[in-house]
Design a binder for these strands. Structure first.
Lengths: 128, 128
DNA sequence: AAACCATATTCAATACCATGAATGTGATTA
DNA sequence: TAATCACATTCATGGTATTGAATATGGTTT
């Protein structure tokens, strides 16, 4: 990810570049949905796959964006890789935004699906 | 501004589109700088021009993005057009982000410049 | 009405992001 | 070590945002 900040003359705006960089990462519905899933702690990729309905490669792409921005962190455990947010304060940003847009705290109700990972197995879901 | 959200299959992420739309507007250093100037109330365009060092057309472009997103509002008074933010809660988002990026509340110290508008004339500045 | 002021809009070129498809990787079981 | 599992990466294409340059607009003064 490369900045294209070549402000015409003076760069009075340079101090804002760091914030812009993070805002850019948040400018994507799938990534916001992923962060929403990670609100209650770490989850594996198959979990997100099952809950969001996207294909694995697509989710992995979005995870890599979040990871490179150092918003999330991964941890391997056997076959599965678990993701978690590094700095919980990102939710302060997201919550403040939701207060403006007037969206319910959890519009995204967990569907009755699950994957084979330990986390999902503890749920009621039934994989097809 | 048109959304390009054509999620592969399911659109579990659609509820996030509204937030994404606003985040997109915040994904720009000049626009963040403008919002920062508007923290203490309304200001005319020439004011921003003087304080940011960008050319008038450029600032006007960014203002139009903020205006179309209904983040700011304009008011005409004689020659000048004054802008103000519509919903102050946008600063909750910006402040939350600054807490993460660790930027000082007002990195952007007002330079000793001014334009001919009534607002600027009350300042100490001297236009070249 | 004409000249002038502050500000807005349009246009075109370029840079950047999104995303599907194909393929690669590293840990694990047999 | 070969097959397999969960996940990551690369590549190519189309779409969207950025921004400089030129020009338009609408209120104001004379």
């Amino acid at each position: 990810m490369v900045l294209n900040m070549v402000s015409s003359k003076v760069s009075e705006t340079r101090p804002f570049d760091v914030q812009v960089q993070i805002f850019k990462v948040l400018t994507h519905p799938a990534r916001l949905a992923i962060l929403d899933i990670l609100r209650d702690g770490e989850h594996c990729v198959c979990h997100m796959e099952a809950h969001l309905g996207f294909r694995q490669a697509y989710i992995s792409q979005q995870l890599s964006v979040l990871r490179e921005a150092e918003i999330i962190q991964d941890r391997r455990d056997g076959w599965n890789i678990y993701y978690r947010v590094i700095d919980d304060r990102i939710y302060e940003v997201l919550d403040a935004m939701r207060r403006i847009t007037g969206q319910p705290k959890s519009e995204l109700k967990k569907p009755n699906v699950s994957c084979a990972c330990p986390t999902c197995s503890t749920h009621v879901g039934k994989a097809s």
